[in-house]
Each structure stands twice: as structure tokens, then as C-alpha cells.
Design a protein around this nucleic acid. Sequence first.
DNA 1: AAACATCTCAACACCACTGTCGAATAATTA
DNA 2: TAATTATTCGACAGTGGTGTTGAGATGTTT
Lengths: 207, 207
Amino acid sequence: MPQSKKAKADKNSGRRDPAKTRDAILAVAGKLLGRDGPEGLSVSQVAQLAGVNRGTAYHHFQTREQLLDATMQWVSAKLVNEVFPDYDPDHWVPKNRPRDTNDKLADFMAANPEFGAAWVHSVIINGGFELDPFWRIYHQQHEHFAETDRAQPNIDAEAHAFQTICGVMLMPYWVRGRGVTDRQRKALLERYKKESLRQAQHGMIKR
Amino acid sequence: MPQSKKAKADKNSGRRDPAKTRDAILAVAGKLLGRDGPEGLSVSQVAQLAGVNRGTAYHHFQTREQLLDATMQWVSAKLVNEVFPDYDPDHWVPKNRPRDTNDKLADFMAANPEFGAAWVHSVIINGGFELDPFWRIYHQQHEHFAETDRAQPNIDAEAHAFQTICGVMLMPYWVRGRGVTDRQRKALLERYKKESLRQAQHGMIKR
DNA sequence: AAACATCTCAACACCACTGTCGAATAATTA
DNA sequence: TAATTATTCGACAGTGGTGTTGAGATGTTT
């Protein structure tokens, strides 16, 4: 029976699962934001691709600008959940090393290429990235590692974290441009991860 | 007298220096492309900011789409001219090491932040970056270095070049977000270059 | 069944941009 | 001076997005 829809709406306020609708809208908006850039995001198109009435979209987000803001936050939050699932703002010490984080991040980005572009555009280019939650955690983790005795001396963790994150976020486009089959793409992803590791271990220049 | 306008129009076809007009339009288009993304580029806005009539813009580029294409090519060509001024497609062997190139590129990007974003969006995200002239040269140079005896063994030059280029292209936004005065920004730029070098020399992990 | 919230749909005025046109203007070369 | 060409200007119809409104449909909770 179609009524058996998991009594999940404990305090989910709404009746028809508005949170899910909102999420569907934001997911599409994230993709489009990555593909077309911020000025290319239209409420109409988002609603259409999300399989939702335009009115519904305006029901959840008063204006295009608000949808844009919400989308940026959503993307960042999504990244945090995926890559740092155990993050707690109060007392958190990174368990993993940066390279494990980067592997995790790389896998996620490979599966959701547009999110990387969306993040780059909204967070980095649009400005205010130093306030972005995901960046803060990512940066913090690198800073933490740099103080470890496993780390080389004199690392500029912030500059390095920035360089790394840019590469990982855009890596799927390198993969996409170089490989056509799934097999090839998977291999390229592995190449990228491997080279990141090699680079961390040995650098580029022979000594 | 205002007539003394350098008889530069040798075979410059036009009368009022159309090439200059075209260039002015493309320069503005490049900035806007970086700021707003490809879908946000409007002929009207470009013409307005370029101090040129909209009709003139349509005189040089038949359609918005063509302006977009031309802008991408223009940005890439500009990068080649700035960073590899001595490049010759037929017989070219990179004189400088990648790190010198990166310093040069970093300086240029710091002076023209939007071009980096424009390049990322048009070349990387929009696709077909493996055909882009600037990327080809940049990649080639890294590949060449990797075969040198100064280089570490087992370098994946392509993956590494991609990671590096992404970082440099977006670096100005890190600088902008972290420093307000010119002095601070200059310092941040130097930090970035320095960390890139340190990383190339020693990697991240102590051995 | 009734109350309620979510979502749908159609219509509206408004605006910005797109392409296109023809005629006018200004600069430059021959 | 005359021919040539880049540039300007105003007008046009067309398109597609915005934000708003109101009425109605749909589903869930009590």
C-alpha cells in the first residue's frame, strides 16, 4: 500500500517532506551552478530539472539570490558531511592525515564533478572563502599536520592547503577530458591520487 | 596636434584601429567571464564596460556565443604571450624550469585575477582543456622537466602540472581574501611562491 | 472528516538581453 | 576632395527570466 511511508516525519514539521523537496532543488542548483556559473543560475531551469514547479521553488527560496546563497552553503555542508563525517566544532582533532582526507575528497569529487566547480565558483571566486566551513576544517587539518613531527619543517600549511584543494576540486575535469570509458577515468583518478602522494613524499626535485 | 597618431596602420586594414577596439572588448569580456561565469556574459554589459556601443560589439562578434569563444581563445593566447614569450610551436625547448614559469605565471595572475577564473571556467570546466594552447605548453614543459636528471623519479608530470596550474590560477583569490592592503597581498603572493618551491624541494612528509 | 501545509498551475507586468535593421557620423587613406 | 570603413544611434520584435498573486489540487496529521 502506498500509505506505508515510514513515519519519518517525527518533527519534520511539514506534511509532504518539504525538506526533501528543498534538498532536491538545491542538488540541481548545485550542479547548474558548477556548470554555468553563478550568473547563469536561473530559478526556472532549476525547478524544471528538479522536476518541481517553479512556484514551489519560489516557495522555498524567496529570490534567485537567496537560492544562490543557499546553494553555496548547501554544497559546503555536503562536503563537510562527506569528508569529515566525524567533525565536531567544539572538540575535534583530525584523526586522519591530510592525504587520507584528500583521497576521500578525490573520490567524492570524482563522483560529483559539478560540485567541485560550484564550490570553486561560489566559495573561492565569489569571495569570502576564508569563512567557508569546509575550507576552515580542511585548513585546520593541514595546519595540525604541519605541527606534527611527521611533517617537514617550515611548511606553509595555509598556502599548501589552498593549492591542494584547488587541484582536487577541479581534478574531475582533467579526468573527464582525458578518459572516455569508466575504466579509464577510474585509472586517471588513481593516477591523480598516486601522484599527490608521491609529491608529498618526495617533492619534485632530486637532492 | 591630435592627428599625430603614429602611422601604425601599416596593413592594419581598418581606419580607426579596429584591432584595438576588438581587444578592448575582449579584455572586458575576459574579466566578466571570470567574475560571472560563461552564462553570465552579456554583450550589452561587455559593450557598456568597454566604453563601446553595443552595435560595435555586434560588429566585431556576430553573436554572444562567438564573443564567448573568442574571449576564451584570447585569454589563453594572452597567457601564452605573457608566460612563454619565446614560444615557437615548431622547435621549442623550454629554457626555464617549471618553477620559474610558475613564478612568472603567479605574478601575472596576481595582476589579473579575473583571467585566472576565466581560464578555469572556459578551459577546464567548459571542457576541451587538453586542446588549449596554454595548457599544452605548460604540460609539455613539465613533461620535459620530469625527464631531466634533476627531477625525482616516477613523476606523473601531467597530473602534477594539472594540480599546479589550478592552484596558481586561483591563487589571487586566496590573496584577495586574506590581505587588504597592497603590502599584505604582495606578501601573500610571495608566501605562495615560496611554499610552492619548498614543496617541490622537500615534499610534505619527513623521511 | 476536518484542518493544515505543501505543492501546482496559470496569468500578470516587468525587465534585460538578443539579434537585426537602416541611416547617420567620424576618422583615415588614396 | 572623395572614397572607404569603423563606429554610433535609435528602433524593432522576440525571447526568457523574474517576482507576485490567487485559486485550487494533493497529501498528511489529528
